[in-house]
């Protein structure tokens, strides 16, 4: 193999690893949308909150990293439930645009709150994981870990949705809201649980991203827009579509970054998104 091939291969592998975390975020956003019929514009800001929680617990209070991760996941799950109770639940019956505005407002609120509390400093958790050498290829251990964990998270979500009563009810509610009561299901409880699960996925993503990125109040902007594009590309509410789209987008970014630059690669991803919206407005996997 020539050197160029190896760098390309490395880019592809890194793309796959990035795709795992993006897929996790897409799953969470799609779950919320599918079940509650609300788009959480501020989803990536929940990730930011999780990263800060982890940073403070680990660096400032000296909690062991795994415990801090667990606490961040639980914390963001609680934040998701709180977001539902305080912001979404009171306006569930109102027009979708109002819900968008409300969760959009939360985005600015959370960003500003973080700026107020923590300033605009970039903070690093200071955990240096080794780089794995496979022949001539270098793979960062933290990315591999992120990918593996994201995959496990996705599988756990799949099992939850296909095996448990609560999970099956979540899939059912997206098909027919009105008759869920006749099945003995309390919709409000399902919505609250879904919000907590969506939050937990954002918390898990935060644990994985904090290994590779510094925390700052606007870190959500690095993942939010791309996550929305992925969800729309896969068909809003379509879990499998979102999962596939996450890996396609991350490949475009990785390979584009290899041939051109990382800025150009985001432009390419966006162009790809727009073109596909013309060709398949219903989403990648829509029939």
């Amino acid at each position: 193999m020539t050197r160029v091939d190896i760098f390309l291969l490395e880019a592809v592998i890194n793309g796959i690893l990035l795709g795992g975390v993006l897929a996790l975020l897409a799953l969470g956003l799609n779950l919320i949308f599918g079940v509650i019929d609300v788009v959480w514009i501020c989803y990536a800001e929940l990730v930011m909150c999780g990263m800060y929680m982890l940073f403070w617990l680990h660096v400032f209070f000296g909690w062991p990293i795994l415990l801090a991760c667990l606490a961040a996941i639980v914390g963001v799950a609680g934040l998701g439930a709180l977001l539902h109770l305080l912001v979404i639940s009171p306006i569930l019956g109102s027009a979708p645009i109002n819900q968008l505005l409300a969760t959009g407002g939360m985005l600015f609120f959370l960003q500003s709150l973080a700026t107020l509390l923590f300033g605009t400093d970039f903070r690093n958790i200071g955990l240096r994981l080794p780089v794995i050498e496979l022949g001539d290829i270098f793979i960062s251990y933290s990315r591999l870990l992120a990918f593996g964990t994201a995959l496990i998270g996705a599988i756990a979500l799949y099992l939850f949705l296909s095996r448990t009563y609560l999970g099956i009810a979540m899939r059912a509610i997206a098909q027919d809201r009105e008759i869920m009561g006749l099945m003995g299901v309390d919709q409000r409880r399902i919505y609250l649980t879904t919000s907590a699960v969506g939050g937990a996925l954002a918390g898990l993503a935060a644990c994985l991203l904090v290994l590779q990125y510094d925390v700052h109040p606007f870190i959500g902007l690095s993942f939010g827009p791309i996550t929305f594009m992925i969800c729309v590309l896969g068909g809003l509410g379509n879990m499998i579509g979102g999962f596939v789209a996450a890996f396609i987008m991350s490949q475009i970014i990785a390979i584009g970054g290899y041939y051109f630059s990382i800025e150009i690669s985001y432009v390419l991803a966006f162009v790809f998104f727009i073109v596909l919206m013309f060709l398949r407005p219903q989403g990648l996997l829509a029939r």
């Binding site: 009563y165 099956i168 009810a169 899939r171 059912a172 098909q175 099945m183 003995g184 299901v185």
Partner: peptide, 14 residues
Amino acid sequence: AKLSVEENLRIGAF
């Protein structure tokens, strides 16, 4: 419609 027969029965036993 998009759940299996068995899953429909499961929901009935929620």
